[in-house]
Simulated assay, not measured.
Amino acid sequence: MQRARSLAAEQAILDATLALLTEDGYANLTIEAVANRARASKSTIYRRWKNKEHLVLAVFERLPVPAAPEGDDFISELALLFGRFGQIMQNTALRGVIPTLVAECMDHPTLSAALIDVNERRRAPLRALLRRAIARGEIAADADVELAIDMIQGALAIRLYFLLDPPSPNWIRQLGQRILCGFGASAPTSR
């Protein structure tokens, strides 16, 4: 019974953190506000999380990361991955929180450091797709995989957070073709 109560309190704290991030942003997030929203004590929060950066990180760590899908080629795998990522983002309030947190990283180096691991988890499926594309000969063996990931994540961020326009299947295909062309493969014919 004690463990169930503890898990319920933890979930209430994480839910409150996400709600407050969405409503007020990172700069205005306080442990006291989280405690009030979650109906928990500040000492309960501090027993689990050292500071608000760790609390925000815990919210992100609870979110699912889509597994790298296996398809016939890089473009089909990229489309599957973007579809899974889109479903996750549709079902969470983080879509509106992520741009704010990115901006806050400029003024809060500890937040930036805490989010490095979160971003690394998001990069891992793309890295797997790109390495399989290299193994299949779609991308040059000496391709800079990390640069390709930066390009994909950057294009996706612009589309989602600045243009507020989810990527269409055609946009994903075009992005995949540009990545293939830029990293040593010729553009595949349209399907």
Score class of each variant (00 low, 15 high):
Arg131Val: 15
Thr110Met: 15
Arg178Leu: 12
Pro99Arg: 05
Leu147Pro: 08
Ile75Phe: 00
Tyr46Asp: 03
Ala4Arg: 15
Leu94Pro: 05
Asp73Phe: 02
Leu111Ile: 03
Asn170Gly: 12
Arg131Ile: 11
Ala143Phe: 07
Gly96Trp: 01
Gly83Val: 05
Val59Gly: 00
Ala19Asp: 10
Phe85Asn: 11
Lys42Pro: 07
His54Tyr: 14
Trp49Ser: 01
Leu78Ile: 04
Ala128Phe: 14
Gly154Glu: 01
Ala155His: 06
Leu81Asn: 03
Ile31Arg: 06
Leu18Ile: 12
Ser6Gly: 14
Lys50Val: 11
His108Phe: 12
Ala128Ile: 13
Ala124Phe: 10
Arg48Ala: 01
Phe74Cys: 02
Arg121Pro: 07
Gln153Pro: 08
Leu63Ile: 05
Glu23His: 09
Leu18Phe: 09
Thr110Arg: 13
Thr22Ala: 11
Tyr161Thr: 07
Ala68Thr: 04
Lys50Trp: 13
Arg48Pro: 00
His54Cys: 13
Gly182Gln: 05
Pro64Cys: 08
Asn51Phe: 08
Ser6Lys: 14
Thr30Leu: 02
Pro109His: 02
Arg159Asn: 04
Gly83Asn: 06
Gly86Cys: 00
Ala133Pro: 05
Asn51Gly: 03
Arg48Thr: 00
Ala27Val: 15
Leu175Ser: 02
Thr44Pro: 10
Leu156Gln: 00
Arg121Cys: 15
Leu180His: 10
Glu104Val: 08
Ile88Glu: 02
Ala133Cys: 07
Ala33Gln: 08
Ala4Gln: 11
Asp142Met: 09
Arg123Gln: 13
Ala79Phe: 08
Leu7Asp: 11
Pro125Ile: 08
Ala157Leu: 11
Lys50Pro: 15
Val34Gln: 02
Arg37Met: 06
Arg159Gly: 00
Leu55Glu: 01
Leu63Met: 06
Arg178Gly: 12
Leu147Val: 11
Lys42His: 10
Ile98Leu: 04
Ile13Tyr: 04
Asp73Tyr: 01
Ala185Met: 12
Thr22Tyr: 15
Tyr161Ala: 06
Glu77Leu: 06
Leu164Asp: 09
Leu29Trp: 01
Arg39Cys: 11
Ile75Val: 07
Arg47Phe: 14
